[in-house]
Write a protein that binds this DNA or RNA. Structure first.
Length: 432
RNA sequence: GUGGGUAUAGCUCAGUAGGUAGAGCACUGGAUUGUGGCUCCAGGUGUCGCGGGUUCAAAUCCCGUUACUCACCCCA
């Protein structure tokens, strides 16, 4: 096999695709109840959009983007959804039409990273963006919605970390303060953190290296340097979360790798360890400066999050009740196959999932297939049935069968489907 | 980008005193001349990742290479 999917990108075959569809349906329904409407933006954006909003010195922009030149333009396959949505929001002057806007998106994102468990080069996110509300009530609502969301998707063991890094000026000041704090101890830091000192000193705070942790523990905390308004915002967030009974954990060391965040940051992590280092199922935060940066007539506060679909699917139950066809046709001759094709076509008009076995195999083999597909019914068509204009309708779920005239097949199928199948234990007894 | 592990049937994997390959699952047939799930019997499938080297002989030893995977970095 010489041609295969490119590194870090996966095929999703029908069996898995069904799980994806269920997840997406749950997501759409749930966020829809909060008023979120879908936005679909292009996969390609001007490279400049991500450089400016995510930040030139971030890992995502400096080494993970799929960018290329086309004529005079530098284009990039989107590495995340927030910047694209914000661009569309500004481009269409949505702020001039309505004061508050709630958008969601679902789709593939691309980052040229080394693949690992829960991390791929093409991965998929479902996310929400809320524009026009400074919070903190909307922040709390969104975080509460995230908890509800992952619970609805079947995630059990998780914890939500929240933090505030202050508004723009506060954040810049804190960053400088951290640099001044760590600089004298440069030699004691890990190699990675020595590099972070120049690129993103906030990152040193959540380093896993024991050398860094010791120093980080004594570093000034963000909460101590928050401006009064920022502190008030964060207090308000916590009060609302408490009132909503959303379980959360204040984590002053929570920082995120994208430059656009202001004030509220949050991350929802799985606590079972099954995703290794990639334990964040979902992450987000407030980005009050982005809309203004993009040239909007006036700044608009915003907050959003993105959920990693692969990661959710990785940690939620794989085994779900299989749904099979309503009726599986097992014809025993060429003539019977022709008849079966026609009968199945009619039955589908009534909305039933039907399949015809045209392989010309034994009845046993065809029934085995029907069972393998978890089909509720099987329609046997042999010489007898053809001669009498009937089919033998076998109820695989109830171990019963009957002869029905082809003219009454639809009614018989509907009647059978309305009857409950035998429970598993009854089947086991029956088998004995 | 750095470091580790793995690569044998469609899938999950066995297979070292080097002697050109096995099991389970799945699939097909039969026991039941037209009846599923359990059971029993039978059957097919492999460039042993790729390239080179050592050897009478390599899935097995050596070198290289590619892919996958895990960890770090970072993030969903």
């Amino acid at each position: 096999m010489e041609l295969r999917a490119v590194r870090g990108m996966k095929d999703i075959l029908p069996e898995q695709a069904a799980r994806w569809q269920r997840l997406e349906r749950t997501f759409r329904e749930l966020v829809g109840r909060y008023g979120y409407g879908e936005v679909r933006t292009p996969l390609l954006e001007p490279t400049e959009l991500f450089v400016r909003e995510i930040g030139e010195d971030t890992d995502v922009v400096s080494k993970e983007m799929y960018s290329f030149e086309r004529h005079e333009d530098s284009l990039t396959v989107r590495p995340e959804g927030t910047a694209s949505a914000a661009r569309a929001y500004v481009q269409h002057n949505v702020a001039g039409v309505e004061p508050v806007t709630r958008w969601f998106y679902i789709g593939p994102m691309f980052r040229a990273e080394r693949p690992a468990k829960g991390r791929y080069r093409q991965f998929h996110q479902a996310g929400c963006e809320l524009y026009g509300d400074v919070g903190p009530a909307s922040d709390a609502e969104m975080i509460g919605m995230c908890a509800e969301l992952v619970t609805a998707l079947g995630v059990r063991d998780f914890v939500i970390h929240v933090n505030s890094i202050g508004s723009g000026p506060t954040r810049a000041r804190y960053r400088d303060e951290l640099t001044r704090f760590f600089e004298p101890h440069r030699a004691a830091l890990s190699e990675d953190s020595q590099r972070r000192l120049a690129t993103n000193p906030l990152r040193i705070l959540d380093s896993k290296d024991p050398r860094d942790r010791e120093l980080a523990a004594t570093a000034p905390s963000v909460v101590d340097v928050l401006a009064e308004e920022d502190a008030k915002h964060f207090d308000g967030l916590r009060r609302h979360l408490d009132a909503l009974a959303v379980p959360y954990h204040v984590d002053p060391r929570l920082v995120r790798g994208l430059d656009y965040y202001t004030r509220t940051l949050f991350e929802l992590k799985i606590t079972t360890g099954e995703l290794g280092a990639q334990d964040a199922l979902l992450g987000g935060g407030r980005y009050d400066d982005m809309i203004g940066n993009l040239g909007a007539k006036r700044p608009v506060p915003a907050i959003g999050f993105a959920m990693g679909i692969e990661r959710i699917l990785e940690v939620t139950a794989r085994e779900e009740a299989r749904i099979g066809p309503a009726c599986y046709f097992a014809p025993m001759s060429e003539e019977a196959t022709t008849r079966a094709l026609l009968l199945a076509q009619n039955l589908r008009q009534s909305g039933h999932w039907c399949e015809v076995d045209g392989r010309g195999l034994s009845v046993k083999a065809m029934l085995r297939r029907a069972d393998g597909l978890a089909s509720r019914l099987a329609a046997l068509l042999g010489a007898d049935e053809l001669a009498t204009g009937t089919v033998t309708l076998k109820d695989l779920g109830r171990h019963e069968q009957e002869r029905v005239p082809t003219t009454q097949l639809a009614e018989a199928v509907a009647r059978r489907l309305a009857m409950p199948p035998l429970a598993a234990e009854e089947k086991a007894v029956d088998r004995g």
